[in-house]
Design a protein around this nucleic acid. Structure first.
Lengths: 263, 263
DNA sequence: CGATTTACACCTAGGTGGAAATGT
DNA sequence: ACATTTCCACCTAGGTGTAAATCG
């Protein structure tokens, strides 16, 4: 997968699309440490569309047919919604922490024979910093946002792959890790603790044409699921979030008090 | 990686090279179960060249420059040699068993910007069936070989990748599993127990030319390390092999009696 | 004092050979 | 007899939240 990075960067880096940004170009020649691509990218300010269960992309005009028909279904949506009702929190650590629930999707409408790259990034949901009021069990605005962390993207490690392969089974981003270390060199997603974020999912058609850069803006489609938004934290604040994590994450089984309710 | 299989098959299936075989063509359209490619291939009878440490390929004439300069170094060679002196045995099980030592190589001489596929296959070392004589602690010929198992290849899961990526660090085939189940549908390598085998390693340049099939025979290079040959078994026969496995395989640490000698 | 880091017990997931059971 | 299968205790490797320590 890593070998592909430079190629996809050159495609995505083309101006005209929401992916265009100076950081793309500067990271093309960056060294890979431990085989993990250091491909960094600050994606442009694509408006975050509201979505319910089925992803949507407001920019469907002038899209290549290889992506315009793509549709995405969020897996474990009811679990995401249960967390979202309480106010989802995701732990960030220096070494990097996986998300739970894991971001998983079911794809359809891809060209089975075409190559696609799948990736995720994270948009700040607002320009604020928060703190948790334990007495009222609620989040309060604690000021303006800290300086934005380096914008990074996470390529699904199976990228690139044929549409048929992506549609064959659920696509899981379980290798994605969140960190609060601004100097992270493991290729993890860097977020500011006590800030709110919106995960985004992107499907990119790998255009085989020589001058594919010119079509970069029409070769991708983005999806946003508002039920996956979350607060980055270094320790859980809302005790009900902690309990729901313990109840639903198999790796936290050691902290369960009672019944093995089916999740 | 799996999405690539059909493409590589079409390249490798071309006649003229040692990879040519009817099985290649017939497996192109085969369904993938559990995402594991069912790409099967019976490779032609390439003569097994003797080799010591550094792999060699006797067929260097008319090779593409993208592969002709490739050289391969076997990792953990002294450990392989230690096993080989005793007569290496590899367990085969119905579910599939990893090799130990793991086949790992260090590559050089690849074109950093070109795409390569790395794969392994296993050649019968002779036409015999063996049994172990415990009284003399030696292997005896027990008759002619059983009917050959379905010839399969194992693509390194990072394939395809750029030469630069393959050369960046040691390439490990630790996902490769051996089975004695002739009906295996997990894509594992099928071997006959009580038969001797020679692992082979192949570097294939992914030719971007439209008519790449015509050049298939000159776009790969094969490497054989005689110190990696082994006897397939369902249970260890030579007790000294068992002890060396226990002493050197971290997963068998539970069976160690004494000192943590550095391996 | 709130936020972050660290060490840790307790899990999941899966790779070992042993020993007993089961074929052939 | 010999070969194979199955179950198991014991590992590696790494994902959990906790509680205490540390930071700012």
């Amino acid at each position: 997968m890593t070998a592909f990075i430079t190629a996809s960067l050159s495609i995505l880096a083309a101006d005209g699309g929401p992916f265009s940004s100076p950081e793309w170009g500067s990271s093309v020649g960056a060294p890979c440490l431990l085989g993990v691509p250091q491909a960094c990218a600050r994606l442009g300010a694509l408006a975050v569309e509201r979505s319910t269960g089925l992803g949507d992309d407001a920019h469907q005009h002038r899209k290549n047919q290889r992506v315009s028909n793509v549709s995405v279904q969020l897996e474990m949506r009811s679990l995401w919604e249960e967390f979202n009702r309480l106010g989802t929190e995701m732990i960030v650590t220096k070494a990097g922490r996986r998300m739970f629930p894991t971001f998983q999707v079911k794809l359809s409408g891809l060209d089975p024979l075409a190559d696609y790259v799948l990736l995720m990034d994270f948009m700040p949901l607002d320009d604020k910093r928060y703190r948790y009021a334990f007495h009222s069990s609620s989040w309060l605005v604690a000021g303006r946002a800290d300086p934005a962390a380096p914008g990074r993207v996470h390529f699904h490690p199976d990228s690139p792959a044929k549409g048929a392969q992506w549609m064959r089974q659920i696509v899981s981003f379980d290798k994605l890790k969140l960190t609060n270390n601004l100097l992270d060199d493991n290729g993890h997603i860097i977020l500011n603790s006590m800030h709110r974020y919106q995960p985004r999912f992107h499907v990119v058609f790998v255009d085989p044409r020589r001058d594919s850069e010119r079509f970069a803006h029409e070769n991708f489609k983005s999806f946003t699921f508002t039920e996956t938004q979350f607060m980055a934290v270094t320790a859980y604040q809302n005790h009900r979030i902690t309990q729901l994590k313990i109840a639903s994450n198999p790796f936290a089984k050691g902290f369960r008090d009672c019944e093995p309710e089916d999740w």
